[in-house]
Simulated assay, not measured.
Amino acid sequence: MWEFSVGLYMISVWPDSLLLAAIYGAIESASVALFGPIVGQLVDRLPYVKVLRIWLVTQNLSFIVAGVSVVALILSSTLKSTNFTAFILLVILTNISGAVGVISTLAGTILVEREWVVVISEGHPPELLTKMNSIVRRIDLTCKLLVPVLTGFIISFVSLKASAMTLALWTTLTVWVEYWLFLSVYKGIPALGDSNQRRFTRSLPISDPEVSVSTSQERESLISHDGDKATATQSGWRRKTICWVTNGPFVGAWRVYLRQEVVLPGSALALLFFTVLR
């Protein structure tokens, strides 16, 4: 609902230009590209229930804040000319809230569609995973088809302000239902609890004496190595910066992606979307 409505909200705030809507879309896409790998790592490390709580709280809270800021922008139609600083701050708040919302939505997608569905289908024929994926995708597409109709009715027969307020109110009420439904699925399927326990066990530190000895030796060698590099701090600082950037999660994720077979089809599909700029 928010993804469909935000363009209309931004256009109504600045009717003479599509700049605000374009900036919002660019910030959302850039947030996913930069912070998506970090979100994936956090989902892989944290327990299921904790990811579920963080996802629902941050997503719905960001949409509530964005809805309130958009309502403020729509109600104060002359804010751009009377108080341009406040106008820019509300626009920035809307963009930041939207970016946080899309990142948290990505965490939920990874948790449910990439993790839970796979765990639930373990030990069953491969057809079950295919069927579950198709059902999840069908639910997703059905929502994307019905939401524009519902939002369009509210905007056409009531007002744009009512649509934004409905979004904020709907988000506030449904977060509790969402959490109850997901928690019921987690508690009702023992395989999810077992998988969560295996993840937690895998993340625990190893207390093997041989490993501890080797770790201490490596630490001592690193300390001595750092001492040797103390004479060349400037070059060492540059080297560390380059290593930090190249080994960062966002760069590493792109490296993994570039080695996949879907690179060319994915790039072709991405370039196809540029035709909307014509």
Rank of each mutant, 00 (worst) to 15 (best):
L150M: 15
Y179V: 03
L34F: 12
D194R: 13
I88S: 06
R45A: 01
F84M: 04
V100D: 01
L89S: 13
P126V: 03
F4R: 04
V119W: 01
E218F: 11
A30M: 12
A86H: 05
L42G: 01
E210D: 08
S29I: 11
V68S: 06
G7I: 03
I92S: 04
R138E: 05
Q197C: 02
W237S: 11
L111F: 02
Q234H: 11
I120S: 04
K187W: 05
V13T: 12
S216C: 02
R53W: 08
N133I: 02
A21F: 06
L258N: 13
S104R: 09
G67Q: 03
S12D: 07
E3T: 10
I92L: 15
S76L: 04
F273I: 05
D208L: 12
N95A: 15
I96F: 12
P37D: 03
L271D: 05
D194H: 14
T201Y: 08
L18W: 10
G236H: 11
A26R: 05
G123C: 04
V49A: 05
S214Y: 07
M1Q: 04
I242D: 08
V185S: 03
Q59F: 10
M132T: 07
S184N: 07
P15K: 09
S212F: 07
G7K: 06
W237I: 04
L128D: 02
G40A: 03
H225Y: 15
G266E: 03
V49R: 14
E122P: 00
D228F: 10
S17T: 07
W254Q: 09
F87P: 02
T105S: 14
N95S: 15
D140H: 10
T174F: 13
K240D: 11
V256H: 13
I223Q: 14
G227E: 12
F35E: 01
Y257H: 07
L34W: 04
T201Q: 11
K80F: 10
W180Y: 10
A270H: 13
L52T: 07
F87G: 07
I155K: 08
R199F: 00
H225A: 13
P265D: 10
S76Q: 08
I23V: 15
S224L: 14
G123A: 05
L90I: 09
S31F: 00
L79M: 15
V112L: 11
S224P: 00
G101E: 07
S69N: 13
T215E: 07
S203T: 02
I110V: 12
W14F: 07
V256I: 09
F182Q: 08
G36A: 01
A26W: 05
V213M: 09
I110R: 01
L264N: 07
V13H: 04
C143Q: 06
M132Y: 13
A253Y: 03
L222H: 09
T105R: 12
A26D: 00
P126H: 08
L264P: 02
V32H: 00
S62R: 02
R238D: 03
V100M: 15
R138A: 15
G98C: 07
L20T: 03
R137S: 13
S212N: 08
A21I: 01
S31K: 00
V32R: 08
P205T: 03
D44F: 00
R45M: 00
G67V: 01
E127M: 06
V102Q: 02
I206D: 15
L18R: 14
V118W: 08
A270D: 02
Q41A: 15
W55D: 00
S17D: 10
R114H: 01
K187N: 15
S184A: 14
N60T: 04
I135F: 11
C243K: 15
L79S: 02
